[in-house]
Amino acid sequence: MIIRDAFPSDEPLWRRLWDGYVTFYEASVPEEVTARTWERLIRKEQGMFCRVAEVSGEVCGFTNSVLHAGTWSLGPICYLEDLFVAPERRGRGIGEALIRDLLNMAKANSWSGLYWVTRSSNTAARSVYDRFIKADDFVRYRMDF
């Protein structure tokens, strides 16, 4: 398994995985937003970046993250916004490897923190996440415009 930055040529495979991710969360993302998201990820605009997991030459998982400043630290903080592994590849350590990749990047680049959210009912993912750290007691409030 190789974990690496996404290349522009990865777009078709990323989009297949992205569609699976959006479907999993019972959401819809307009094509215009998906296209702009990919563009920002590839160009690393606004702190956004994408890492992919490649197994036997096939991209089978990704993380989409946003590196940003914080008010409680000097170094940047990484928000792991999206993590997805192809259903047929799950249970093989790919999700864990993608998180470890971000942890290695955090240490190498002096990030102050790494955080992410998931649905409380996403028990399969939470079993992986709990190997790294237990969920805290914060409650998220969200307004969409």
Score class of each variant (00 low, 15 high):
Ile2His: 04
Ile2Val: 05
Arg4His: 07
Arg4Tyr: 00
Arg4Trp: 03
Arg4Val: 04
Arg4Asn: 01
Arg4Phe: 06
Arg4Gln: 03
Asp5Tyr: 10
Ala6Ile: 03
Ala6Tyr: 01
Phe7Val: 10
Phe7Met: 04
Phe7Arg: 14
Phe7Gln: 06
Pro8Lys: 13
Pro8Leu: 08
Ser9Phe: 08
Asp10Trp: 06
Asp10Ala: 01
Asp10Met: 00
Glu11Ala: 12
Pro12Thr: 09
Pro12Asp: 09
Leu13Gln: 13
Arg15Asn: 09
Arg16Val: 04
Arg16Ala: 15
Leu17Cys: 14
Trp18Asp: 11
Trp18Val: 07
Trp18Glu: 07
Trp18Ala: 10
Trp18Leu: 09
Asp19Trp: 04
Asp19Arg: 12
Asp19Ala: 14
Asp19Met: 05
Gly20Gln: 06
Gly20Asn: 06
Gly20Lys: 03
Tyr21Pro: 03
Tyr21Arg: 00
Tyr21Gln: 06
Val22Thr: 11
Thr23Ile: 08
Thr23Asp: 15
Thr23Met: 12
Thr23Ser: 12
Tyr25Gln: 04
Glu26Ile: 00
Glu26Trp: 00
Glu26His: 09
Glu26Ala: 08
Glu26Asp: 01
Ala27Ser: 15
Ala27Met: 08
Ser28Cys: 09
Val29Tyr: 13
Pro30Ala: 15
Pro30Thr: 07
Pro30Asn: 08
Glu31Met: 05
Glu32Thr: 13
Val33Leu: 15
Val33Lys: 14
Val33Arg: 12
Thr34Met: 04
Ala35Asn: 13
Ala35Val: 11
Arg36Phe: 14
Thr37Cys: 10
Thr37Val: 13
Thr37Phe: 12
Trp38Cys: 07
Trp38Ile: 02
Trp38Met: 05
Glu39Cys: 09
Glu39Gly: 10
Glu39His: 14
Arg40Pro: 03
Arg40Lys: 07
Leu41Val: 15
Leu41Ala: 13
Leu41Pro: 12
Ile42Tyr: 03
Ile42Met: 11
Arg43Pro: 04
Arg43Glu: 03
Arg43Phe: 05
Lys44Gly: 02
Lys44Trp: 04
Lys44Cys: 01
Lys44Val: 04
Lys44Asp: 00
Glu45Met: 13
Glu45Cys: 08
Gln46Gly: 10
Gln46Tyr: 14
Gly47Phe: 12
Gly47Ile: 01
Gly47Asn: 01
Met48Trp: 12
Met48Ile: 10
Met48Cys: 13
Met48Ala: 09
Phe49Trp: 08
Phe49Asp: 05
Phe49Pro: 07
Cys50Asn: 04
Cys50Met: 10
Cys50Glu: 07
Arg51Tyr: 01
Arg51Ala: 07
Val52Asn: 03
Val52Leu: 02
Val52Gln: 05
Val52Gly: 06
Val52Ile: 00
Val52Pro: 02
Ala53Glu: 00
Ala53Cys: 01
Glu54Arg: 00
Glu54Leu: 05
Val55Asp: 08
Ser56Asp: 15
Ser56Asn: 10
Ser56Leu: 10
Gly57Met: 03
Gly57His: 03
Gly57Lys: 01
Gly57Cys: 05
Glu58Pro: 05
